[in-house]
Amino acid sequence: MALDHNASGVFPIAVTPFLPDGSLDVKSVDSMTDFYLGAGATGLTILGIMGEAPKLEMSESLAITKQVVQRAGNVPVVVGVSAPGFAAMRQLARGAMELGAAGVMIAPPPALRTDDQITTYFAQAVEAIGDDIPWVLQDYPLTLTVVMTPKVIRTIMQNHASCVMLKHEDWPGLEKISTLRGFQKDGSMKPISILCGNGGLFLDFETERGADGAMTGYAFPDMLVELVDLARQGIRDEAHDLFDAHLPLLRYEQQQGIGLAVRKYVLQKRGAIASDAQRKPGGSLTAAAKAEVEYLLSRLAKRDARARA
């Protein structure tokens, strides 16, 4: 099953489970996959930025890909293949597709600054992995420091038939979504799927601007699924009420430096993974931070029973 521009719904960005000693937690890879599928995910995305991908050896990345793809069954799996060099990118991309992945995701390296540098980089990336592999363009300037205008994104999409999805993570970025959908409407850009990341921080309005769903790792993917479904049905107030209930925890999870630690802590509490450990170098929550998360969960539980776990 190959990824295409019709992809929609929620593709959670999966964490990578580790044991306290830093080794891969193979058992939790299965429980994590089951958790996301049980939440109603329409797809899965592994080895992203919040999946600690740079800390993995190539053999580990391929082993995780194989395990998740097999466990997910008919649910499409997107694999992050961003790498400093194209040789490693090609090896992981081709290997992931051979294992049954639906597509790959590529982020620009931080050194890119001009429009020509950006378009040239992605042309070289496609040449390296092969134009037969469907791929997701990750636009995350807040972390990657690479600014891609709507026109640059349109150029990349038009130059490469294999680019079928945008992972939109710009902030502010609502106007960018509207502009891209406008390009589609006037015929100057092909139809693409737009899934939004950034922790889901603006998902309530992104869906209204034309996003097809979410590709992010907030620890309540079941809420994201419900929100996207409500938006599709046009039940606006209920969608925003649900989002507002989760916003304090969502905001807390978005903190630079400890965001992944918060996410893994909540996922552990929800039974998705056995340990909230990160592979070094990695952070952890202080007792004070854990108490704050617990307080946020207790408040959320008054409005959403899923937080009681």
Rank of each mutant, 00 (worst) to 15 (best):
A307F: 04
W135P: 04
Q117T: 04
Q278K: 08
A274I: 07
P54I: 09
T286D: 01
S23C: 13
D237I: 10
M105P: 05
G197D: 00
A87G: 00
L250M: 14
A96V: 06
A111H: 12
N74C: 00
G213I: 13
R251V: 04
L19P: 00
L142Y: 09
T145S: 14
F183N: 02
R113W: 12
K151Y: 09
E294C: 01
P109D: 04
Q255W: 05
M89G: 05
M215A: 14
D212R: 11
G210W: 11
D241H: 15
A93I: 09
I46H: 04
L112Q: 01
M223R: 01
L19Q: 13
I46R: 02
M189P: 02
F11A: 10
V146A: 01
D304A: 14
V75E: 00
G22R: 15
A93R: 14
K190R: 14
F18V: 02
S23K: 15
S275Q: 07
C196F: 01
A123K: 15
K302T: 15
L230H: 12
S298C: 03
L56W: 07
V293W: 02
A291V: 04
T114P: 07
V136I: 12
D304W: 14
P281C: 02
G73H: 03
H246Y: 15
G40E: 07
Q254V: 00
T45D: 00
P134S: 03
E238Y: 09
T42E: 15
S59V: 11
G95K: 14
D304E: 08
G51K: 02
E52K: 07
E175K: 15
S28C: 09
K302C: 13
I177R: 03
H240A: 08
Y252D: 02
E238Q: 14
L285W: 05
P17R: 02
